[in-house]
């Protein structure tokens, strides 16, 4: 047993988390940039040209990670919002608010890149199929969360109302997903599954490198964003004067 125990609750206080987040940002931002450059290199120069889709399939190297991260961040946002609501933890609610913007941006990127990829692959910009439509709905859920939070002036009420909405949304996401799937499906089957890995290894490498880059990027950006939120909400606090000075 080591004597040095880290008191995790200490960092639930914005006053302690603020400097910690400042120190942690480079730890995530730098590896993210490295992974991004590596992934781009593998994606553009190492991965072979697809025999069916030509060069345009390379859009998927950014599209797939963006879609994954966009979906996962919604769950993370709901978890943080729920913690903030249940335990009255200010910092968790701030994290939820910080995540919402990043998640919405990634969802938007995945929609735009998907559309750019769909034009050469399917011949159309947009297809009303299950996955596209449910990503679009996910985007609507993010927009609902962000606009609800920003239209409530009282911060505590905004956090709690956002938490209710995020949790209701998270319960609804699977229902929406399956309903949309039964409604229509033209999409190609899932390429990445446990049993069949129907990708060239170098393609998978590029995709996972960029997935890591997107992950680390979102952690870094969320930390930076949460620092701004802390500064905005705690500007009256005495510790803020010391931290900024």
């Amino acid at each position: 047993m080591s004597n040095r125990k880290i008191n995790w609750y200490k960092y639930a206080a914005p006053a302690n988390f603020y400097p910690l987040a400042g120190k942690m940002i480079p730890l995530f931002a730098v590896p993210s940039a490295i992974l991004f450059i590596l992934g781009m290199y593998v994606g553009f120069f190492v991965a072979p040209t697809d025999f069916q889709q030509g060069e345009s399939y390379r859009i998927l190297f950014i599209h797939v990670p963006a879609a994954w991260v966009g979906m996962f961040l919604y769950v993370m946002m709901a978890i943080y919002a729920g913690i903030g609501w249940a335990f009255n933890a200010r910092l968790a609610s701030m994290m939820a608010q910080a995540i919402s913007t990043t998640g919405a941006i990634f969802t938007f990127i995945s929609l735009v890149t998907g559309s750019l990829w769909g034009r050469p692959a399917w011949g159309v910009w947009w297809v009303w199929d299950a996955r596209l439509t449910s990503t679009l709905i996910l985007m609507f859920l993010y927009i609902g969360f962000i606009s609800l939070q920003s239209s409530i002036d009282d911060v505590r009420r905004a956090d709690r109302a956002g938490a209710v909405l995020a949790l209701v949304g998270v319960i609804n996401v699977p229902i929406i997903y399956f309903s949309v799937q039964w409604w229509n499906s033209l999409h190609q089957g899932a390429t990445i599954s446990k049993n069949s890995f129907k990708m060239a290894p170098s393609m998978a490498t590029a995709m996972f490198l960029l997935l890591g880059a997107c992950w680390l990027y979102s952690i870094a950006v969320v930390l930076a964003r949460v620092r701004y939120i802390i500064r905005e909400r705690e500007q009256e606090a005495p510790w803020m004067a010391e931290a900024v000075a």
Binding site: I137, S147, L148, S151, L165, V168, I176, S179, V180
Partner: peptide, 16 residues
Amino acid sequence: LVALLVLPLYIPVLIF
């Protein structure tokens, strides 16, 4: 705001 919040949640009902 109600429209933004509620309409996405209505989608399964609309589909069914």
